[in-house]
Design a protein around this nucleic acid. Structure first.
Length: 211
DNA sequence: AACTCGGGGCA
DNA sequence: TGCCCAGAGTT
C-alpha cells in the first residue's frame, strides 16, 4: 500500500526516539534467544532481572540442560507462563545441540521450528544478534502501525509484509524499536496521548483510541 | 477464530 | 479486585 507521509513519519520517529534499542540484556545469540522466548507477555525489565542470574550459571544450551524443568520453572517463576516457557527453553536447547552443534541457526525457517519461537521471536534474534534484515511485529507494532496508517491489516504476517515493502531494509529493526518505544510512551493501547504526540500531524487516527 | 497459559502491571 | 499484556501453540 502507498503511504504519502511515510518519509515524514520515519524521520519523526527517528528524531523522537534516536536511541531506541533492544532492551533485553544478552551477550550472545543463545542468550538473546532465551531472553526473547521469556519476553512473551512480559516486560523486558522483568526478563532482565531473571536472566542476569540465569545466564551467569547457564550461558549455553548444554549448561541449561543441567536444569530439570521444575528447577528452571522456579528460576523464572516471577514472570508469567513459566511452565510453558521452561519446557520450551529446554526443548529448544536439545534441538540446538542435536541439530545445530549447540549454535543458534541464522534463518527464519530454522528458528521458527524451535519450541516457543514464533515469527516475532525469530525476527528479534535474526535482526539483533545476526544483523539479518527482519521486522518483528508484536502487538505494539501492530497497533501503532495501524493507527499511523502504515497498514490496514490485522494479521501480523500481513502487517509485516506491508511494513517491509514500505520501509527500506536497513531501517527495519530501528523502526521496529522506535515503534515499540512510541507504543509504550505515547501511543499506548488505552488513552494514547495524542496531544503530546509529535507524529499527530501525520496520524490519520489521532484522538481516536479505538484502534 | 477462539481459546490457554500466568504472574505482574495498572487502573 | 479485575482486567489486560513486550506471543506461541493447539483445537
Amino acid at each position: 500500500m502507498a503511504v504519502k507521509n511515510i518519509e515524514a513519519i520515519l524521520n519523526l520517529l527517528a528524531s523522537t526516539y534516536p536511541h531506541a534499542h533492544c532492551e533485553l540484556n544478552y551477550k550472545n545469540p543463545f542468550e538473546l534467544l532465551v531472553a526473547t522466548i521469556l519476553s512473551a507477555q512480559a516486560t523486558d525489565q522483568k526478563v532482565n532481572q531473571i536472566t542476569a542470574k540465569l545466564f551467569a550459571q547457564y550461558p549455553n544450551p548444554s549448561k541449561m540442560l543441567e536444569l530439570t524443568p521444575s528447577e528452571l520453572e522456579n528460576k523464572i517463576r516471577s514472570i508469567g507462563l513459566f511452565r510453558t516457557k521452561a519446557k520450551n527453553i529446554l526443548a529448544t536447547c536439545k534441538l540446538l545441540i542435536n541439530d545445530y552443534d549447540g549454535e543458534v541457526p541464522q534463518t527464519m525457517d530454522q528458528l521458527v521450528k524451535m519450541p516457543g519461537v514464533g515469527r516475532k521471536t525469530a525476527s528479534v534474534v535474526l535482526a539483533n544478534a545476526f544483523g539479518v534484515p527482519a521486522f518483528p511485529v508484536d502487538t505494539h507494532v501492530l497497533r501503532v502501525a495501524k493507527r499511523l496508517g502504515l497498514t490496514t491489516e490485522n494479521n501480523p504476517l500481513k502487517v509485516e509484509k506491508d511494513l517491509t515493502s514500505l520501509i527500506s531494509e536497513k531501517l527495519w529493526i530501528a523502526t521496529h524499536h522506535r515503534l515499540i518505544f512510541h507504543g509504550r510512551r505515547l501511543c499506548s493501547a488505552r488513552k494514547p496521548q495524542c496531544n503530546n504526540c509529535p507524529l499527530a500531524i501525520h496520524c490519520p487516527t489521532r484522538g481516536n483510541d479505538t484502534f
